[in-house]
């Protein structure tokens, strides 16, 4: 099949070697599959070395979406690309674990910013708070 499918309507931005994308509140099975296909295509087409998926708005991850994320990570790794899933909400993390899913192999980051840093991107203004002056004896 040729051409870029846009079934998901999820924008995928490119920042240098990194593809950045974010999922909305929820994902039905069809959109999840379309998202997987589209992202895989973009990885190969653009030779991305890293992918950041911001899921901070996603309110539910069931076994289907979890499997999609795992598959994506594995596929990307085979293509030489590192995937980081960032910003998982606490209720989603708890539910996933209780569901029995650990998303083995999927790299996670607390925030999109941390994820980007892990992929080699840094904010120009230092995000590090400065100094330990308040701990001085």
């Amino acid at each position: 099949m040729t051409g870029v499918r846009r079934a998901t309507g999820v924008p995928i931005l490119r920042l240098g070697d990194v593809l950045v994308t974010g999922l909305l509140e929820e994902l039905d099975d069809r959109s999840a599959t379309a998202f997987l296909d589209e992202l895989t295509e973009r990885i190969t087409a653009e030779g991305a070395t890293g992918v950041l998926i911001d899921i901070s708005r996603l309110t539910i991850i069931d076994s289907f979406v979890a499997r999609t994320l795992s598959e994506l990570t594995t596929t990307a790794r085979l293509l030489g690309t590192r995937v980081i899933v960032a910003g998982m909400r606490p209720p989603v993390a708890i539910t996933l674990v209780e569901l029995g899913l650990r998303l083995d192999g999927v790299e996670t980051a607390l925030t999109a910013e941390r994820g980007m840093a892990a992929l080699g991107w840094f904010r120009t203004a230092s995000s590090q708070e400065v100094g330990h002056g308040d701990h001085a004896g």
Binding site: T59, I94, T95
Partner: peptide, 17 residues
């Protein structure tokens, strides 16, 4: 609560699928 809502909606999603 929010966590319980997520549990119940996730369970529903599995069963309905």
């Amino acid at each position: 609560g929010l966590v319980d809502q997520t549990r119940v909606v996730t369970a529903a999603s599995e069963l309905v699928r």
